[in-house]
């Protein structure tokens, strides 16, 4: 099968690759780039384990082809911590036990990041609605909802900290 050239920015790095036209984005990320934090949990775009951010929006990477990512900016779970320091939302998931087996976690984190970008202070109901494309079989979601609420708070605190004028 002939290969197609694509250019993407993934987790801030410009990447040029050649891919089979039929390859799903999730397999390109996992297998060609070794970004195995993006998971596969279904074949019907229900579970959300494969969620990544494309140009800032949450997208299920099993629903698009790698070639369709050409020219786009992608953030995967590996790209959300800065200089080795966990993102506040990652910290919140750890502290509030937003994970058990951890398989759904990368997708949960990226979906919630997108939510928190649109809505810095979501209600519990909004959070639950927003997770309708992400399945978790372990937690019963309650600790995930709590993690996201707490993460929103940590993110705000961090922003305020950074905005504080230097005296």
């Amino acid at each position: 099968m002939s290969l197609v050239k694509i250019k993407t920015r993934i987790n801030g790095k410009a990447i040029e690759s050649e891919v089979e036209p039929r390859k799903l984005l999730v397999h390109f990320l996992r297998e060609d780039l070794g970004l195995t934090g993006t998971h596969v949990g279904c074949d019907t775009s229900n579970c959300g384990a494969c969620t990544v951010l494309i140009n800032g929006r949450a997208v299920k990477s099993c629903t698009m082809l790698a070639v369709q990512a050409d020219g786009n900016e992608i953030t995967t779970i590996e790209g959300i911590s800065r200089n080795g320091e966990l993102h506040p939302l990652q910290k919140a998931f750890l502290e509030k036990h937003g994970l058990q087996c951890g398989y759904c976690t990368p997708g949960m984190l990226l979906t919630s990041l997108w939510l928190l970008k649109k809505n810095r202070n979501p209600s519990e109901e909004e959070i639950r609605k927003n997770l309708s494309g992400n399945l978790c079989r372990c937690t019963g979601y309650q600790s995930i909802v709590e993690s996201i609420k707490y993460g929103a708070q940590l993110m705000k605190e961090k922003e305020e900290e950074q905005e504080m004028p230097v005296r």
């Binding site: 195995t36 934090g37 590996e78 951890g102």
Partner: peptide, 17 residues
């Protein structure tokens, strides 16, 4: 290690190559 899981650095079977 839960921390590796939130980082996307778990070691699930499909990650092995």
């Amino acid at each position: 290690d839960a921390t590796s899981l939130v980082r996307g650095k778990g070691h699930f079977v499909d990650d092995i190559r």
